[in-house]
Design a protein around this nucleic acid. Sequence first.
RNA 1: GGACAGGUGGCCGAGUGGUCGAAGGCGCGCGCCUGGAGAGCGCGUAGGCGGUAUCCCCGUCUCGUGGGUUCGAAUCCCACCCUGUCCGCCA
Length: 426
Amino acid sequence: MIDIKRLRDSPDEFKAAAARRAPDIIPQLDAILELDHQRRALVQKVEALKADRNEASEEVARRKKAGEDAAELLTRLKTLSGEIKEQDPKLRETEGNLKQQILRIPNTPLEDVPEGDPTANRELRTWGDRPSFSFDPKPHWELGERLGVLDLPRGAKIAGSGFPVYIGQGSKLIRSLINFMLDIHTTEHGYREMWPPALVNESSALATGQLPDLENNMYVTGDGLYLIPTAEVPVTNFHRDEVLSGDELPFGYAAYSPCFRREAGAHGKDTRGIIRIHQFDKVELVRYCTPDTSTDQLELLLDHAETVLQRLNLPYRVIVLATGDIGFSSAKTYDLEVWASGLGTWLEVSSASVFTDFQARRANIRYRPTPHSKPVFVHTLNASALALPRTIIALLENNQLEDGSVRIPEPLVPYMGVDRLTSHGG
RNA sequence: GGACAGGUGGCCGAGUGGUCGAAGGCGCGCGCCUGGAGAGCGCGUAGGCGGUAUCCCCGUCUCGUGGGUUCGAAUCCCACCCUGUCCGCCA
C-alpha cells in the first residue's frame, strides 16, 4: 500500500516515481488525491458534530447526576445525533472508495531500477560455464521419462495438465533438494525455519499484494481460502498486525512450501515438461528489516539465493528487472536465471525483491526503533531459493550423459545416496 | 459438525448504560537510593485518523470484527470470526 501522506505532501515527486513503472497511472493518483481531499473535509465536518454531541452528552450526565432536568438538552442532542447519522455514512463510503483505489496502486520502483518494459531488463553478470556436449542434449521431459523419475501423463490423469508426478529417484530428488536448500539457509545464512500453512485467508492474500490484482491466478476453496502461490504469503503474514522490537531486526525465515498457480492467461507459453506448472515446490526466504538497511538486505538475499546455484554448479545470470516488469508489490527485483542445456535457454529460478514498506503497510507490521518511540513500518523482502522444477530441469539437462543417465552434483550426493540417476536406479 | 464458557492496553486482570482510553498488577523507560547490583520509593508508559504545529496542544475513533438499540455502549441486542472445554468425527 502506498503512503497517502507522501502522495499528498509531494504529489509531483510521487507521480513522477509512479509513472516510471506505469505511465498511465497519473489519472488514478489524481482521483485518489481528490477523494482524499473530500475525505478530510468530511472528517472535519463529522468530528465537529461529534465533539458537540460528546460535550452535550457529558452535560446530560452531569445534570442527571445532580437531579436536574435535561429534557431540553436531550431534544437538541436528538437532532445532533440525527445529523451525525446522516453524515457519517458519507464519510465511511468515501473512506471505503479511497481504500479500494489505494489498494490497487502498485509500489513505486526504486530510483536505480531501469525504466521501461521487459526489454529494458538488464543482465548484471553471469556465473559459471555452460556445459558443452559431444551429442545433442535432450530436454528434461525426455530424460525424465526415460529415467522413470517424471510422469506427466499420469499426473494429468490424476489432477490435470500441469500437475507432474515425481517417482522413485525423482521423488527423492525433490526432498533432497528441499533439505539441501533449507540446510544451507538455516545453518549458514542464519534463517529460522518455518513450515507454514498452504492455504491462507483473504486478509493474508491482501497483505502481500496477491489481492486484489492477482485474484485470477490463485486457486480458491469453497471456504473462501486461497491456495498459496508462494510461501511468501503465509510467512510474511506471520507477523501481521504486530509491533516488533527494533533490536531483533533484521531477521529472516526459510520456508519450504508447495505452491499453486492457476497460470490463467499463460496458455501456450512454456507449456512443455515442467517449465510452467500448476503445483510446484519451493524454498522461500523472507526477511524483515529497518527501512535504512533494506537495499543492502536485498543484495544479501540475492547472495543467499545465488549460493544454492553455485553449490549445485549450475550456470546462471543475474537480471535486474525494469520498472515495467517488476511485481505489483516490489520496489526492485533481481531474477536469477539458470541455464538449461536441453532447452537451450535461460529459466527463471529465483526472484529476489525488496518491497520497502509496501507490504508492511498492508500487513501492518511495525517496529519500535527505541523502546518508547512510535512504531514505524518495517521493510520486507523475499527471494526464492530456489524454485524446484526449473532447478531440476537444469540439473537433468546440464548433467546428462550420452547414455541418458544424469550425474548428481557432489553436494547433493549425501542427500540422494547415489551419484547418478540411471534408468535402472529405481 | 453440536453444547457450554470466553475474547479488554506489550502481558495479566477489574469493570454490566453516562468525566472509562479504561482500576490494580506485571513488564518497560527515567529518576532517587546504593561502593555496585537487587530490593524499595517517585514519575512516566497504546494506536489510527484529522487539525494545528518541527516533536506541545486540540478533536475524533478504537475494549475480537461488522451492524443495531440509545441523547449516550467495553457494558444491551443481532450476525460473523477466533480461543478453551466436553461430545462427535478423524490421520
